[in-house]
Design a protein around this nucleic acid. Structure first.
Length: 266
DNA sequence: CGGCAGGCGGTTA
DNA sequence: TAACCGCCTGCC
């Protein structure tokens, strides 16, 4: 399917800004990967977003790529409320915050704790291969269901090299099944293995709370560099983001994160 | 070998 | 409630 005349989108910005782990580059302006139980190849040409997917209707992909949100207006509002963020919004001009499946987001960000991105990706693919279903014609696997992970044995999960996160994963899947999908930050924090940072990531990426402002080691460094916050003053950073960016704090976090992490790699 | 990576849970003062 | 510590693993 094709979505025409899409502005403010760049696949590298969107897939490499730290919000998802299952998409890999596949040619210029193209990525291949999976979202939930669908696989696909996505490419961008002349303002058209082309999606060749194994499933999912137009509404699904429109929502996944957040095509109904006006990112031009968001960048403008952010730069007006805080001029220091403008270079970051220009650098990552094509970031879009994906609407990802809540359960997939919960497990993915539990895995992300005290971990590095290459290994997070590897762990998630292992988990999908072991507990997901093959997605026909793609060579990929769906993200595992809550049922599949709740029934998993911790020692089997350990073979996937998930480390001490194994028990968090199993217990969280069980709780999700029993209690239903969490809807608030407080409910997320009751999950074993979900703390303040991971909860904010899930709120932002899985539950569409764009006011959520995940403070990770990168954001701490950024807030220290830009505003002189003490590296331990997470609460101060949260309060600053809420006051300065309000409902757009989540977008601000993504622009800042991508800008600074990318530059530090050069 | 120690340090570290997109933290968290548990213990202690 | 703030400070500290250990933690699976893999790569430096």
């Amino acid at each position: 399917m094709v979505f025409e005349n899409i502005k403010d989108i760049d696949l590298t910005h969107t897939f490499e800004c730290g919000q998802c782990f299952r998409w890999v580059p596949d040619g210029p302006d193209a990525y291949t990967g999976a979202a939930g139980s669908f696989a696909g190849r996505v490419s961008l040409s002349d303002g058209c977003l082309n999606i060749e997917a194994t499933g999912g209707d137009e509404e699904f992909w429109r929502r996944y790529f957040d095509l109904d949100t006006d990112y031009g207006a968001i960048k403008k509002r952010l730069a007006e409320s805080e001029p220091l963020i403008k270079p970051a919004t220009e650098y990552g001009y094509g970031i879009r915050i994906l609407n990802q499946d809540p359960f997939e987001t919960i497990i993915s960000f539990i895995i992300s704790q005290n971990n590095n991105i290459p290994r997070i990706r590897k762990n998630i693919e292992s988990l999908c291969r072991a507990y997901g279903e093959p997605i026909e014609g793609s060579g990929l696997y769906s993200f595992p269901s809550p049922e599949a992970l709740a029934e998993a044995r911790v020692c089997d999960l350990a073979e996937l090299r998930l480390g001490y996160r194994c028990e968090y994963i199993r217990a969280s899947a069980e709780r999700y099944l029993k209690e239903g999908c969490p809807e608030t930050r407080e409910e997320l924090l009751e999950f074993h293995g979900i703390g303040p940072k991971v909860a904010n990531c899930i709120m932002l990426f899985g539950l569409r709370d764009t006011a959520a402002f995940p403070v990770d080691t990168w954001v701490k460094q950024i807030m220290n560099d830009m505003y002189g916050f003490d590296l331990k003053d997470t609460k101060g950073m949260q309060a600053f983001a809420a006051e300065k960016y309000g409902d757009l704090a989540g977008y601000a976090q993504q622009y800042l994160f991508y800008y600074y992490r990318d530059r530090s790699h050069k």
